[in-house]
Design a protein around this nucleic acid. Structure first.
Lengths: 341, 341
DNA sequence: GTGAAAGCGCTAACAA
DNA sequence: TTGTTAGCGCTTTCAC
């Protein structure tokens, strides 16, 4: 006796054919209500479980959207995936997640896995390590719909949803200036990534607009980590021109900066103001609570899935417009940057 | 012209047959090095991509391990998955993640998705909402290997890796007592979950051992959240017997307690000591830093994958021993519970 | 409304 | 070492 029940087994039991069973199970038009109910009942009785592998092979569709994120340990991505899942489930898709662990190699492996599994679409947020885009372009050649979110690159001919990083950085920097800080430093991320590059530019633009001279010694390129924040502070404090405020490229970096400052008994926000980017969960729980820029994670997830759905529906058509949705950054000012009360 | 290249296409080009191509591509014994190299070359040239759906349908194996976690927004689970992935990749498996969002319904959906996709094994950490186990038992009937991690239940005839929650709670409570606290309260989780039940028991046992009378008013059943921690504090402070120390069932609950205490200007650890459980990332960054019990996440991931591998290899054999690996909790004492210096 | 039959792309048992 | 053939479980076109 075989372990798994197939539609053939059900057909046999009901003295009919696999075709009929398939139709009944899939709600096809042109099947009598009576047979349908009967099939459904027997299927349940026999503990039938559709083999979606066989089904996919035949139909060419899997109903699965593959999502590649750098790390499940960063709340930000978990939250975006949440948004994706909400929309996906509403539209009858299942979401599977693959972690790249910020490595270009794993990222490629994830893409291969998903392509080989013939998922209906792939959504990606780039790994930090990724500097060339061959694997993305190869994937695109398969005509599998692809959408980037958050960490994308306009150079790629691929749809994306990001937030306006330039504007977010501009807002953050302007806020620090308006709080009365004079010497604003920036701890950046790897500048080969467009996300982080836009943030430096927003920072510079804000300084310029407010007539503050830019000092290249006040820009430190880190790797987006707690340790990078610490290193940057040590670097700044050893220089001649010491900053009185820090705009960090994201919250973990800001956290590192805060820790290093606290260990040196430098008061935040009285002596040095700090603002981050991303609105990670921990920000509101640390002391002082962290000012930051919120990236509308759930909206980002939903919007990017919408783009995906469009691509899936338009698949095969010759429309080639690239869609780039850009969300507005939302400032979240907390204690760490509030010099004025 | 078809979009996807199949082994038949390669065979045609090389004037040979699909069988040969398959053998070459899969490193089968008994194929000449020459043809193999040739096939590999042409396959690359033609941009061939194995259809793992077809391959799985035929071979009955997918090379995929499905992992169901309550939430990707809790670092703890991300970290365990990390451990799982490390071992899985080493053994040629790919890991896909499904979030249950703490809902029994989603959990079941995840299991169905994975079963229908015919994954080679499923690893689960139970959702908070789950109170009946029918979906687990149904899954087990399919003979698909299943392993639980962290949130498991000994009542289930299914392999698991957990930590010794009883002992962890015992250590935490004893630590508070030894720090000089006299009235130790416990904020528990939903008591239908064995994990949390064991922790209450460990708490009670520690009190008993130290000759401290247990007060049921000092046990508050929460739902494992920041808000639960806050509620518990409000509850305790409104009672007659006010605690001078809190053992929280996990770190988010402890965080809620700390926030509520701080808002009332109650000093931690001087007036009230606090210890959590899980060693979430944020714990070392808050003020005061949070004492907690580490659950050896990465080891947990690795060990649970090892159990999975055993099950996969023994599949079909009649061995029916249930393996339950229990890891040792590791105390991490930080500021929040250190009354004595 | 249902049956018959072909085939999705691959693997594996059996021949040669 | 390679070719031949059957079939994994399902969907779908074409008959009736």
């Amino acid at each position: 006796m075989s372990l798994t029940v197939t539609i053939a087994d059900i057909a046999q039991k009901l003295h009919t054919t696999p075709g009929t069973i398939s139709r009944a199970l899939n709600n096809h038009p042109g099947i009598s209500e009576k047979t349908k109910q009967q099939v459904l009942k027997v299927a349940a009785q026999m503990n039938y479980r559709r083999n979606s592998i066989a089904s996919s092979l035949r139909s060419g569709q899997t109903g699965i959207i593959g999502v590649i994120i750098p790390s499940a340990e960063i709340n930000f991505f978990g939250s975006v995936v949440h948004g994706i899942e909400t929309m996906a489930n509403k539209n009858g898709y299942n979401v599977l997640i693959y972690q790249s662990n910020e490595s270009r190699e794993h990222e490629q492996k994830g893409i291969e896995t998903f392509l080989n599994a013939r998922v209906d679409g792939i959504m990606i947020s780039m790994a930090k390590e990724t500097t060339d885009y061959k694997h993305f372009l190869d994937a695109k050649k398969t005509k599998t719909p692809i959408v980037f979110f958050d960490r994308a690159d306009d150079q790629l001919p691929i749809d994306s949803v990001t937030i306006n990083d330039y504007k977010g950085a501009f807002i953050a920097t302007t806020h620090l200036i308006e709080q009365g800080y004079k010497k604003i430093a920036h701890i950046s991320g790897p500048l080969h990534m467009p996300v982080f590059k836009s943030r430096v530019e927003g920072y510079k633009a804000a300084l310029k607009k407010k007539g503050i001279k830019q000092d290249t010694n006040l820009i430190f390129e880190g790797d987006v980590s707690i340790e990078a924040g610490r290193k940057a502070i040590r670097h700044f404090l050893s220089g001649k021109n010491k900053p009185d405020a820090i705009f960090a490229v994201e919250d973990f970096t800001a956290l590192g900066a805060i820790k290093e400052l606290k260990e040196r008994n430098i008061l935040i926000p009285q002596q040095v103001g700090v603002i981050g980017f991303a609105n990670e969960n921990f920000g509101e729980h640390i002391t002082p609570s962290l000012s930051t820029i919120d990236q509308q994670t759930v909206t980002m997830g939903k919007e990017s899935f919408n783009l995906m759905l469009n691509l899936i529906e338009k698949k095969g058509s010759s429309k080639k417009t690239i869609h780039r949705k850009i969300l507005e950054p939302v400032p979240v000012f907390r204690e760490s940057s509030m010099k004025k009360k």
